[in-house]
């Protein structure tokens, strides 16, 4: 197995405050990697660097390399827009497009890309909604507003939306923190299913979640990556004292 996505010396800052320092990480294809750490440790910023969303914030900047299949996505001739089609993202709060129907919310990525054929759109929407385990619940009301769904359904809709453009990586920024336990369980279940087709990087503040769903886990603290390894190892035999203190609940 080679690394689908990796970072080299990735640093990021807002204005003059540095929030990430020299991060080196590799993400293997068809795995789930979790990033844990206390709030303010830079874990969100980190995954936002992976699809170059970080730079959309005023005064934000990033240096270093992020390699997707060996190509640096921060190279000067690379268009961030193209990158974001290969690396999808799901946000903390469900954010379906308010004025679009459920169908259009999923189809929008393809429509933007110029796909007009109804058959392709329908097929993709169905497949993505099925992947996101939402199809059975919405197949009879594809034309109602995306915002009419419940919170958990909305989040799965956002996952379907991201999957529709067939990204090779899916970034998830605390995707269940705004959801109830039942919806959370559904999405966790979904992730183990999804990793057969897509590589997932998830930020979570919930250590149990990381332990349940991920193959590898990284621990971030104050903008640095402290430890990164197999999830089972990191949680049972952490190498770094700070990791140990965090997972045993002695800080933050």
């Amino acid at each position: 197995m080679y690394s689908l996505l990796s970072t080299q010396n990735l640093s990021a800052s807002f204005g003059s405050t540095q929030v990430l320092k020299n991060i080196q990480m590799d993400f293997d294809e068809f795995t789930v990697s979790a990033i844990i750490g206390p709030s303010g440790c830079g874990k969100s910023t980190f995954i936002r660097c992976l699809n170059r969303l970080h730079e959309e914030v005023a005064e934000a900047s990033a240096t270093g390399k992020v390699l997707l299949q060996g190509h640096d996505i921060y190279a000067s001739d690379v268009d961030p827009v193209a990158i974001r089609r290969k690396i999808g993202m799901v946000f903390q709060k469900p954010n379906p497009f308010p004025s679009l129907s459920i169908f259009d919310n999923v189809a929008i990525g393809l429509k933007l890309a110029g796909v007009r054929r109804g058959a392709i759109l329908r097929e993709t929407v169905e497949r993505s909604l099925k992947l996101a385990a939402l199809w059975e619940e919405v197949k009879d009301k594809l034309n109602s507003q995306g915002t009419s769904l419940s919170g958990g359904q909305q989040q799965r809709l956002c996952i379907a939306r991201a999957l529709a453009v067939e990204p090779s990586v899916l970034l998830m920024d605390e995707p269940t923190s705004a959801l109830d336990p039942i919806s959370t369980a559904k999405i966790e279940e979904l992730m183990t299913e999804l990793k057969k087709t897509v590589t997932i990087v998830i930020v979570t503040h919930n250590m149990q979640q990381a332990a349940r769903i991920s193959d590898k886990t990284a621990f971030f603290l104050l903008g640095e990556m402290i430890e990164y390894g197999e999830t089972s190892e990191l949680f049972t035999a952490p190498k770094d004292q700070r990791t140990e203190r965090y997972i045993t609940g002695r800080f933050g």
Binding site: R85, A113, G114, V115, I120, V165, E166
Partner: peptide, 8 residues
């Protein structure tokens, strides 16, 4: 599909 994206 990928070709489609690239062309448009």
């Amino acid at each position: 599909f990928a070709d489609y994206i690239f062309r448009s």
